[in-house]
Design a protein around this nucleic acid. Structure first.
Lengths: 137, 137
DNA sequence: GCGTGATTACTCGGATACAAGATGTCCGAGTTTGAGCGG
DNA sequence: CCGCTCAAACTCGGACATCTTGTATCCGAGTAATCACGC
């Protein structure tokens, strides 16, 4: 079990967008350049973020992406869910009666992590970057 | 990102072993029967648990598996790590200077979950099963 | 100048290719128990 | 009764086969700004 690279790209992209002027449009090309990833692939990922309502896209020349006016400061959890999906990390595929104790424990564990990620906003990192030590991009 | 079925099998197997007499040997065939999974596949999974020191195997006729005398009450985390590996759930493959803030957040989140899973022992579930409501196997 | 069309710079979506990992299966090898058999 | 052999019941390990998913590319379509050109 591992988080996908797509999630990595999405998080870094969001961090970059949060760190730039809110109205500023950034093209996929620039975002891909920073992360050394193919623009076409990154665009697929960003489309998911658009559909999740976290960023807005403007097409045509001088187009690009920027933060959504509503929801300008998403949490880690929102971004991860947008990419990885909402499904539970653990699914007991057994046919024993509902209420598998193992499943319950695993869901609780997941909730612990998600609660943490839900309270962690992207903007926190952005301000850390400005005040803190060197951290490229 | 999802936990593998193998982890599911491993957890259910451990729960069964914890619930039976400590010295009792249980064959792969029985364990596979309970979970409706092929014995040969389950044996691959159990081998990992053996190598992790959580269960012992006895080969030959009347052979089978039982809990390890040392470590008779493993935690969820130990079992999961034995199957899924110890690696971090999130690896920032970017080349920016060490100390990626995103990576740090993700690791913290993972630690939240792991701390919970580390405190959750298999025996807790076993005793819940005896006292609590119906829960097959 | 001023519309009008062409070009350019973008995003968007589907189809496809490729690689890796999860999920199983098959088979042969080693190991222990126990039964059968001969002395 | 004793010891030997042999078959049965197991685990173990490697080598596959298959399926799903993640990763990535390619191409065509749509869209908006800008440029060129003719009037």
């Amino acid at each position: 079990m591992k988080y996908s690279k797509a999630t990595n790209y999405a998080l870094h992209t969001m961090l970059h967008l949060v760190s730039t002027a809110p109205e500023q449009l950034v093209s996929v090309h620039q975002l891909a350049e920073l992360q050394k990833v193919s623009p076409t692939y990154l665009s697929k990922i960003l489309t998911k973020l658009v559909k999740a309502g976290m960023i807005e896209s403007t097409s045509g020349a001088n187009g690009g992406y920027r933060l959504s006016r509503k929801n300008p400061d998403p949490s880690f959890l929102e971004i991860i869910h947008a990419i990885e999906g909402q499904a539970s990390l653990f699914e007991c595929s057994q046919n024993h009666n509902e209420g598998c104790l193992i499943q319950q424990v695993m869901v609780q564990a997941e909730e612990e992590m998600e609660s943490f990620l839900n309270n962690k906003k992207m903007s926190e990192l952005a301000s850390e970057m400005k005040s803190g030590s060197a951290h490229s991009q």
